[in-house]
């Protein structure tokens, strides 16, 4: 494993934890999608996000330790954002979160295309190929839902719940200024968040959907409501015998 600066590790950990949480939350929808084709599509997206998480963890954790690191840390040591951690137990919430998160995720990978961290730029290029499908899928759904009055009301209600939390994806790491200076990332979270707000605002207008897109940053050291039980379930099996190879 290569030696990385603290700033680089912080950026990678925050992104890896986001991908792990969103992938795991999406995974909970397997078998429950509104129709079979959508079940298959959403499951593929979940697998992609988990794959991104694994590739990112692999840059900062020895391969043999990834599962224990991903599942057994104390909650205070995770650096995921609220948007990725939320449960989203209904399809309207899951869909809107998918759209908000993937719109941001695409910008975050683009921000790594010139990264000075060995291997990260290549990973970003590969992940962006996945993201083209994810964003297209989310947008297709948002476009179709807004055409139907009752679906539009549901999506707008979900937007009202999620938009206040959505800006959390842009919560910077403590060492972000160093990460920019070292070329780990090209631009700050604040710069990207403005691009994201522009994109989301334009899309909402295009969809004819109402929503306040102001960014409220969160704190990546504080876990969201519901994280504890989610974290317990993630580690339920591996913690039965932490010495075992599962």
């Amino acid at each position: 494993m290569i030696e990385l600066s603290t700033a680089a590790k912080d950026v990678i950990l925050a992104f890896a934890d986001d991908e792990h949480m969103i992938g795991s939350r999406h995974a909970n929808w397997i078998g429950l999608g509104p129709f079979l084709e959508e079940d298959l599509a959403f499951c593929s997206i979940a697998q992609d996000e988990l794959g991104h998480a694994l590739a990112l963890y692999d840059l900062i954790v020895p391969s043999s330790e990834i599962d224990r690191f991903a599942l057994l840390r104390d909650p205070s040591q995770y650096r995921s954002c609220t948007l990725a951690e939320l449960e989203c137990a209904t399809w309207d919430l899951a869909l809107v979160r998918h759209w908000l998160y993937d719109t941001a995720e695409e910008l975050r990978w683009k921000n790594l295309l010139q990264s000075t961290v060995p291997g990260l730029a290549d990973l970003a290029a590969q992940a962006l190929r996945d993201e083209a499908f994810h964003t297209s899928h989310a947008e297709m759904f948002m476009t179709r839902m807004h055409r139907d009055e009752s679906a539009r009301l549901k999506v707008e209600a979900a937007l009202a719940v999620l938009l206040p939390a959505a800006g959390s994806v842009w919560s910077p790491t403590d060492t972000e200024a160093e990460a920019v200076a070292e070329g780990v990332i090209a631009a700050s979270s604040e710069t990207l968040s403005q691009q994201w707000v522009d994109t989301v605002t334009t899309d909402l207008e295009r969809f004819g959907l109402a929503g306040n897109t102001g960014v409220t940053l969160g704190d990546r050291t504080i876990r969201s409501q519901g994280f504890e039980s989610f974290h317990t379930s993630l580690g339920e099996v591996i913690s039965l015998d932490t010495a075992a190879i599962w």
Partner: peptide
């Protein structure tokens, strides 16, 4: 699907997702 959220590894979760996706 019941145990996929609790899979004891990230890679394992991917694998069981793929398998269940095959079944569906």
């Amino acid at each position: 699907r019941d145990w996929i959220p609790r899979a004891p590894g990230v890679r394992l979760k991917q694998i069981f997702l793929a398998k269940t996706q095959d079944e569906i």
